[in-house]
Simulated scan of single mutants.
Amino acid sequence: MAKSVLLASFISINSVDLSAFASKIELKAEVEDQDVTTFASGGWNERLAGLKSFELGVTWKQDVAASQLDSQLWALFATITTFEVRLSNAVVGTGNPKYTGSVLIKEHAPIAGSVGDVAEMDVSYPGSGALTRATA
């Protein structure tokens, strides 16, 4: 079993590589569980998979200079846009799959922190549609 250390992950939003601004990426997929238990279930719960969903969480290091992170993400606020993430910025392959889909840029936190803190924003973008995994 290969182990990984996240040193140079890749994140693209709206087809723009924003990896240089990200210090944390979390992509979570889940499925609703639907209870289909009946009297014939023998006293055990029975479950089926329902609707699937995913969420992309990112910690961004803020940059408000012209044409940098703040202006790029602000332009996407309240829209659905594409994304791609990979464990490594290396070429996509069986050892480095890419995950793609669309997310709603539902939040933006241009100013957050205390005196002496690094200017960063922790955000979560809910998925819209299917999440895809590819190795080519």
Results as ranks from 00 to 15, higher is better:
W44R: 14
T59P: 01
K24N: 13
G50D: 10
Q72M: 08
T100Q: 10
A90R: 11
I13N: 02
V103G: 05
P126R: 08
S71L: 10
W60M: 01
F21H: 00
A49W: 03
W60N: 02
G43T: 13
E55T: 15
K24S: 11
A40M: 14
N89Y: 01
L104S: 08
L69K: 00
G127F: 12
G42E: 00
P110I: 13
L56G: 08
S9M: 10
N96M: 06
E55A: 15
D63Y: 00
G101F: 10
D122K: 15
S102P: 03
T100H: 05
L76Q: 09
A90M: 08
H108T: 07
E26H: 00
N45E: 07
M1E: 09
L87Y: 05
I105C: 12
S9Q: 07
I105R: 12
A90W: 06
I11H: 00
I25D: 00
S71M: 12
V16K: 15
T82C: 06
S114K: 11
A65H: 07
D63K: 01
Q34P: 00
Q34A: 08
P110Y: 11
S102E: 10
N89D: 09
D17K: 04
G42D: 02
Y125N: 02
S4A: 13
S41G: 03
G50W: 05
M1P: 11
G50P: 04
F54A: 08
D70E: 08
E26S: 04
T100S: 08
P110L: 10
A134P: 00
P126S: 11
A65E: 11
A40F: 09
L7R: 12
R47F: 14
A29G: 13
G42C: 01
V64E: 12
A119I: 02
A75I: 02
S102H: 11
K98Y: 06
A29F: 05
T94P: 05
T135Y: 12
T94K: 09
V85P: 03
L87P: 03
E32W: 10
V36S: 02
E120R: 11
A8K: 07
